[in-house]
Amino acid sequence: MAILELRGVTKRFGGLPAVDDLDLDVAPGRVVALIGPNGAGKSTLLQLINGLIAPTTAGAIRFEGRDLLGRSPHEVRRMGVATVMQRPRVFTSMSTLEDVAVGARFGGGERLREGPATEVAAEVLERLGLGARRDVSVAELTLHEQRVLELARALAGRPRLLLLDEVMAGLNPTELTAFVELVRSVRDDAGLTIVWVEHVMRAITALADDVVVLALGRRLAAGSPDEVMRDPRVIEAYLGRGAQRC
């Protein structure tokens, strides 16, 4: 039984389909990577799931059998779906601990009071290795630390599905390895299901169970990382991608 089901999901922006009649089933506990050239609709898809873009032009999105479409981001979060964005969006007036505590206090299904929320936050920060920085202002954290912070804020609300949007972008090789290990350990500890948009192939081969290739909003190929990388259609789709700017 799939934890996340997408059926015929379609989203158009001014007539152009960003996501086009897409079906997807994600089984519990899997790490599913979504890859594809720029403009393939990957980030749009994540934002359709977490409620940042609403509603779709057509189709259905179900999480644990419950409909997600038309729900606002905070409702989706409280149902158990957390998101880590590509560009860290941290609460700049807060300390690291306070920032994560927001996730604990508002993200979970149950209403935590201030004390217990802070305890949960401290625990998660400790587990992700950011415990030493808990009283620092988040504005002072490095990009890598801010990513870990966002992951911690997501986990503090005890999600069952984690959406990651290009969280490996911009990290140096050491940080990349560390972050891959972190995500792996989180998955193993909590039995999380992860849907993950990513460009960094090294990270995908290291972590993904399944890879789904999107192009122009449609599914181009799917399978294990190895299978997909060798697929000639995938290679063509990537080589076919043109220059971006003037």
Partner: peptide, 25 residues
Amino acid sequence: SRLGWGFRALRDDEVAAALAGVDVA
């Protein structure tokens, strides 16, 4: 209060607050 925590979060970043579970509206 809990609401005040939400205020602080949404004042810093509304999108991040909503994604963290704050009912911004």
